[in-house]
Design a binder for these strands. Sequence first.
DNA 1: TCAACATGTCAGCAGATTAGTGACAGGCTG
DNA 2: CAGCCTGTCACTAATCTGCTGACATGTTGA
Lengths: 137, 137
Amino acid sequence: MNSQYAVAVHVLSLIDRFPEHSSSADMALSVGTNPVVIRTVAGQLRRAGLIRTRQGVAGASLSRPASQITLLDVYRAVNGEDRVFRLHERPHPSCPVGANIQATLEDRFGRAQAALEAELARSTLADVTADLACRAG
Amino acid sequence: MNSQYAVAVHVLSLIDRFPEHSSSADMALSVGTNPVVIRTVAGQLRRAGLIRTRQGVAGASLSRPASQITLLDVYRAVNGEDRVFRLHERPHPSCPVGANIQATLEDRFGRAQAALEAELARSTLADVTADLACRAG
DNA sequence: TCAACATGTCAGCAGATTAGTGACAGGCTG
DNA sequence: CAGCCTGTCACTAATCTGCTGACATGTTGA
């Protein structure tokens, strides 16, 4: 898993708390990376319908309230259909184990993925920014 | 996540069901890879205390019953302390968001990781091999 | 004893992934 | 129209991934 997910949550938190400083240059300072990286992540969030941006105009805004954006939404926006666990590619079809291991693993790994996503769905962006405000004192 | 985890479960299933064909060469055939890959994964499983091997002697054996080896044990054997989600490295310490985002994400991502691991702990190697036997008919 | 074979481990390779960066087309605003 | 912004591309360097040859070391049976 690349760190784009963490960057995406960071970016959304900035847009929620400091919309007046949500240009790619400003957010790049807070995230500690290049503005192009911010614009790339913002593009994924925009295509997922989580934020609104306008070419040529600094800043971004949330498409819906922070309380209605879950960490699962962000995960899907950044990760697409990728799963946490990967299968090996070429198990031997003539071996009783090799012939069936992929289906079995897909089942078990799928349950783990579902548990992960269910937990992500329990946190919203509002929870995150409330937590940030609490920590900032 | 690399596919070593899937390979590790495959290897353990082979050792459980066909211990007489658990040389690195035989298992490499079933997994569809090079024997060195099998020996590397087997080394991780051995260091984690899940299997026993002897240098110079073909084959491996489980260190304890398959019903007492969970998929979480295998995950930890192969993955060490690595977590599914990565944080970005250099958030800005002077920004209220940047200064606290890592702690917040560590908390939320940690819960998701815990949910994932709890689900993995619910499956044992015995469950996997039973499933394989069922599918093989 | 020794030939044959096995494991354990390392080094190196090619291809994919990751993060960062410069460049620039195109849009907005005063 | 000057200046600034976003969206996107191409390129680089570093890292990761899977595979493979090589070889030291241990075991076994003749």
